[in-house]
């Protein structure tokens, strides 16, 4: 029905998303080019993960895919899987801070003092959101919140609430995976020990599985907004709901396992480098934990 080009056109264009994605990719590529000149090589996988993460998040919000998400429950669940799990996960995994920093023009760095009044409240808000317990509760809580049937109904009716829902998922996803996968101390993000990170990943799994299983196995149509507003193509409400429940249940929980394996990989690698270099080093990436975590 759609040609590819038509499919790539935004269903509901959002200037904010388009500018933000263009800005992120522009800054990153500039950073890569500048870095290459000064001898910083990023290899293939990190830029690949970063660009794939941004592209996926753009794709599910700024193409006709968004139309399908508004009119099919399981496609909406995949959209949130990308916005809250996969996209932010890839972006955080690529550890893009250094490249993005190199990409910023010098003038921007010099004019930083203008932003100082904003900086203090932003930093305290960030610290609060990245407090491990709050971050964990927020990550799982948002999934439950937007899947509460009455709240979900209204979010699907109102363009503003729909946008709020998707933004909140994307921002929370970025915060959470940044906290979990961050390795370079930036003086802001709490540097949790690998054990605590894996504990958080384990804690978020059961509630997501229970919620996904409850939706997948439910015998009644929990999210009737899709019937009320019309589905993108004729599928029985329960089949749509079962697939959507499975998406909430299995891949979301799998992300925890994948992330934990990656963290174990980081741990072993750091352990090996520490053993081969005799210089005294603190616990793995953990110099700030006593000051920043509560």
């Amino acid at each position: 029905m759609f040609s590819t080009l038509q499919f790539l056109q935004p269903w509901e264009p959002s200037l904010a998303i388009q500018l933000l994605c263009a800005f992120a990719v522009g800054l990153y590529i500039t950073g890569l080019v500048k870095g290459r000149r000064s001898g910083h090589r990023e290899g293939f996988w990190k830029p690949f993960a970063f660009l794939l993460g941004v592209t996926l998040m753009y794709f599910v919000t700024q193409t006709q895919y968004d139309y399908l998400s508004q009119h099919m429950f399981f496609i909406h669940r995949i959209q949130h899987l990308v916005l809250h799990h996969l996209g932010p996960f890839l972006i955080a995994l690529s550890a893009p801070a250094a490249v993005l920093g190199r990409g910023a023009p010098d003038s921007a760095r010099r004019s930083r003092s203008f932003l100082r009044p904003l900086w203090v409240p932003a930093r305290s808000a960030y610290r609060i959101l990245q407090q491990p317990v709050i971050a964990t509760v927020l990550f799982v809580g948002l999934i439950f919140f937007w899947l509460t049937p009455s709240i979900h109904f209204d979010a699907m009716l109102s363009a503003q609430r729909y946008a709020l829902m998707n933004w909140s998922m994307a921002v929370d996803g970025l915060l959470f995976w940044w906290l979990i996968l961050n390795r370079a101390p930036d003086g802001l993000t709490p540097q949790l020990s690998y054990g605590r990170r894996i504990l958080i990943l384990a804690v978020i799994m059961p509630p997501q599985s229970v919620l996904g299983a409850y939706i997948a196995l439910s015998k009644q149509d929990l999210f009737d907004v899709y019937a009320v507003c019309g589905r993108a193509w004729p599928v029985s409400p329960l089949v749509d709901q079962q697939i959507g429940g499975l998406v909430t249940w299995i891949p979301s929980s799998m992300m925890s396992v994948v992330a934990a394996l990656i963290l174990l990989g980081f741990m072993f690698r750091e352990h090996r480098t520490r053993r081969s270099t005799p210089s005294p080093a603190g616990p793995p990436g953990n110099p700030l934990s006593s000051t920043t975590s509560v």
Partner: peptide, 22 residues
Amino acid sequence: RITYGRGKPDASGNYEVSHSSA
């Protein structure tokens, strides 16, 4: 925020249309 879709026509050219019930 509603949608509709037209099904494939049968032999006599009749087709169903899915639409919002609201």
